[in-house]
Write a protein that binds this DNA or RNA. Sequence first.
DNA 1: CAAGGCTACTGTATCGTTACAGATTTTCAA
DNA 2: TTGAAAATCTGTAACGATACAGTAGCCTTG
Lengths: 345, 345
Amino acid sequence: MNEKHKNRPATILPSPNERPTLKTIAFMTGLGITTVSRALKDAPDIGAETKERVRLVAAQVGYHPNRAGVRLRTGKTNVISLILSLEEEFIGLTSPMVVGISEILAATQYHLVITPYSARSDPLDPVRYVLDTGAADGVIISRTEPKDPRVALMMQRNFAFGTHGRTEMGLVHPYHDFDNERFAYDAVRMLVERGRRRIMLLHPPPSLTYHMHMRTGFERGLRDFGAISVPFNTVDLDNTLVDIRAACEAAMRAPGAPDGVISGSGGGAVALVAGIEDAGLKLARDVDMVSKQSNDFLQWLRPEVMTLREDFRLAGRELAKAVIARIEGQPAAELQTLSFPVLQD
Amino acid sequence: MNEKHKNRPATILPSPNERPTLKTIAFMTGLGITTVSRALKDAPDIGAETKERVRLVAAQVGYHPNRAGVRLRTGKTNVISLILSLEEEFIGLTSPMVVGISEILAATQYHLVITPYSARSDPLDPVRYVLDTGAADGVIISRTEPKDPRVALMMQRNFAFGTHGRTEMGLVHPYHDFDNERFAYDAVRMLVERGRRRIMLLHPPPSLTYHMHMRTGFERGLRDFGAISVPFNTVDLDNTLVDIRAACEAAMRAPGAPDGVISGSGGGAVALVAGIEDAGLKLARDVDMVSKQSNDFLQWLRPEVMTLREDFRLAGRELAKAVIARIEGQPAAELQTLSFPVLQD
DNA sequence: CAAGGCTACTGTATCGTTACAGATTTTCAA
DNA sequence: TTGAAAATCTGTAACGATACAGTAGCCTTG
């Protein structure tokens, strides 16, 4: 509309095949590059009509800001990094989390980058990598420990992150956690209601925070409902399924064998079922079992096993929301959520 | 501004807390930025001793090239995008692929970005997004169709990609595929060897390329080993497990019910087992079953089911290698691999 | 009507890197 | 001794975006 002919710097006509940039739009609208940039971010010093015109042209030519340009200039990567242990056992659990995270990120500018590490290496390595290279604006980690050095490091550097699981360091940070204490407590109750008294728990590795949560709920359940614990300390959820199966069979054949079993994960439950049956026992008849479950397989093939569902997809959603909110400056204390076991069917 | 001094431009000492850049190293070594850049890429016009010195200092200060800088200047993103359908059913399968891909990328500069789409939207969308925004140097896709428009588009744009599964358009591109024809053929053989004659196949959706592969192997097996097909066309592997289970039960109760069942995926097999048992039949006694399997669950809970393993982790590794090789200019014809069913245990 | 303030817009410098076109010194054949 | 070639090294411009410090015109206000 208002052509005020100061002759514009001799802009070369942008070649029509290339990706449009701010320059393209500036050329098409007759505005300056800065104006276009500010118009697109709805800055207050740009006229309403101009903004409209710029937005229209931008949409028309399919403008997407160049991520490298933004990132170089502002330091903002628009990336959330999910730090994943590559051991097969965990990836099965974390994959629904990827779905949840993606669901949230889809509505934003953020991309999801998978930053892997192997159990044989230091879990701090991937975190340090992201921090040192500025590879992401925020990070999501799992397998959280009570005194987690990754959390300490990111807090110290004032870096946005969320943890799947809680810590116990007196540091306030975003997390999402499943109430494993309640899970174990409810599990004991369910077993006792079915007349079971001698209960065995397949617990997470002691290094992880939720080990203590689960044990606490377990012990409390034993006390409140009047059952006793059958020790099962030779294996935990980080052992291979083969080891768990063998250990379970041994426990089932030993004197004072359990008549109730609790599995802290769905994968472990499969091994426990196999171990129980290896020992010639039958579910529901000789032994009852409660498992934490994330997929349907177990339930379909051994409906006798009672399952309490943990929703990893929800965890992904909550964590993605929390990390983004943290990046945007929301206080960490407001970004802590807990989810509860849901009886399956 | 055009100051032509002999002495170096008045470089400000890089603040010690910031990430080191080429400038930092240039300052420390007393060299020019260009020289440092070229030394680090082992360019032929830099002295051997200089290169050594630069490399030493770079390692010392923990230099990582700024990805945004490289990307902006060269257009190289150093990103591989895995395009994932977010439906829970598929994510379970594709997650071991993430592990395989990560294993390969870990030794390179590449990052893995998950680009999701939902089944309700156009599968072309994520591909177009990557192409239009230059979000990655290469792409990996699954659920490949015989005339796959994503493949056509990326070929036309001369963009590096690899497909999990083959196409049939006369276009030569990198792929990794599982030999589903052989799987079905072997499966029929295994069933016939156990005296089964009336065989039912749970096949993939007809739109996917491997549907035809599997059917071909199936039909060939029926002919070669003298068995007959029991139609099972009301459901395929894209249906929910609940639907598959119900359809299977119905088939098992119908006149002329099958005595052998083949499942084109591990997840489907669980539903089939449940359906068979719903109909009051017993595995190994009334019906035998062969399944494609990717995890151990089924095998542990129904060892009667014979399983042929498909290695998704290997697929991830092969595809990552292929895409990188393609980016580096290797001919697509050399980047096509096939893997074969392995009898489980 | 001058001074000041507001509105709407713009040019320049910069982020870190690399392509390119020199520049300087050394080496060496004639 | 003299070019010329080889060996090393370097400055500038650019990739696309944004922060910042303007500018130009117009409107108040006293």
